[in-house]
Design a protein around this nucleic acid. Structure first.
Lengths: 217, 217
DNA sequence: TTAGGATAAGTTGGATCCAATCCAGGATCA
DNA sequence: TGATCCTGGATTGGATCCAACTTATCCTAA
């Protein structure tokens, strides 16, 4: 996405972020400062700063003298995160809708085509994330979009776990929702766009709630 | 509120947080690590960590090699924050409503009485904040409530500036909204409670939008 | 055998020192 | 005269060393 930053703390943060989002570091797993420092060839200090940054993004949690770990969310916590998304993401959509142009709609359609053509779970997750974040890209309100990214990051692992378990069944529902969303955006209709998006998130939430085995005790 | 933490970084963070929320450090103002370290009798290191924590709370912003400062928000940014609050805070209310008991309602009524009796702007701001956060206290979803606190913190300065300019006029509207909110909570009615709360936040937003002199260029 | 406590290892928090970066002011040259 | 480049001060980023805390283990005693 971006070039590796020259500042060590940012570089380390980017590395750890990728490891957490990809699932190489899972929920509940501990992150020792010295391990990371040795692995990335730096002292513990920039690692500490990086962990603070990730904490701000909801990717790690800290306790004094007890170190950092990736939060293990309960089903209730993920459920609430999805309820927040149901209310916040439609706002980002509406805020950005006036600035959506044809080029963006084309990119969305192209992404959706790749989503429908794909068969790999990891690929689907990445493309789906890219698709939705792209629908918010014209919003241009850092406070709002960063909040949304945080929520996507926090729930990334559970989305992957769910997808891995359930596989590709009923994927046509996602495709239909995505295409209706694109079409509403093409019409510039914020009411319809919000409705399809909220429904999309809500349906995902209710499906997740049928798989408690994905979550922490 | 809580006892001063034994960990230096937390203590420094608490100190800076209070200074920012009280307005002693205003938007756009720079925070130099060495100044804070000298003033609070610590090295720069815990100050750096404290600034990272505050960044996570939206109270400061950082740039590499350029230090930390309190963000100066534009009117548009505050407007969007209020639109987010309009959607998210009603959710916290509904989530916590089943666990609201008589004792909590009594405390809310008592707080509202003190709000209506007060004449000082600073006191009003503190009590109003306490009132609303108390209505979310039974929600018990850390991810949701911390998000709400962040938004209150980020907009604190502009609320104070607005109140200082407009004074105490039309305060009866706030009282009426608060009392209707308490009453809806007493009935355990999430629909009405959400409606009154969303209206309360929305009205504040539209009033703020009539005072562009409060915001950054 | 188990509960309790002391101890030691491992990990994080903090202080000091050094390096890298940014910014402003002034000198130089076209 | 004006723009550009350089240099010095100020400030942040990073490394190393030391202190404090947490936790697990082992030993002792009931």
């Amino acid at each position: 996405m971006t070039a590796t930053p020259e500042v060590a703390s940012l570089r380390i943060a980017a590395h750890l972020r990728a490891e957490i989002l990809s699932g190489r570091i899972g929920p509940g797993e501990r992150i020792r400062q010295e391990d990371v420092a040795a692995r990335l060839g730096a002292s513990r200090l920039p690692v500490r700063e990086a962990l603070r940054m990730l904490e701000a993004e909801g990717l790690t949690e800290h306790a004094a003298n007890r170190g950092a770990r990736v939060p293990a969310l309960t089903m209730k916590q993920v459920d609430v995160l999805y309820r927040i998304r149901e209310r916040v993401e439609p706002l980002a959509l509406t805020e950005g809708l006036p600035h959506v142009d044809a080029a963006l709609l084309d990119r969305l359609a192209e992404l959706e085509a790749r989503i429908e053509a794909g068969t790999d779970v990891g690929e689907f997750l990445a493309l789906d994330r890219e698709f939705h974040l792209l629908t918010y890209s014209t919003c241009d309100q850092e406070l709002l979009t960063s909040m949304i990214v945080r929520m996507w990051n926090s729930t990334q692992h559970y989305r992957r776990a769910y997808m891995t378990i359930t596989g590709m069944s009923h994927r046509w529902i996602v495709y239909a929702e995505h295409n209706l969303l694109i079409e509403a955006m093409r019409r510039g209709d914020p009411v319809d766009a919000e409705r399809y998006l909220a429904g999309h998130i809500r349906r995902t939430r209710t499906e997740l709630s049928r798989h408690p085995e994905v979550f922490a005790a």
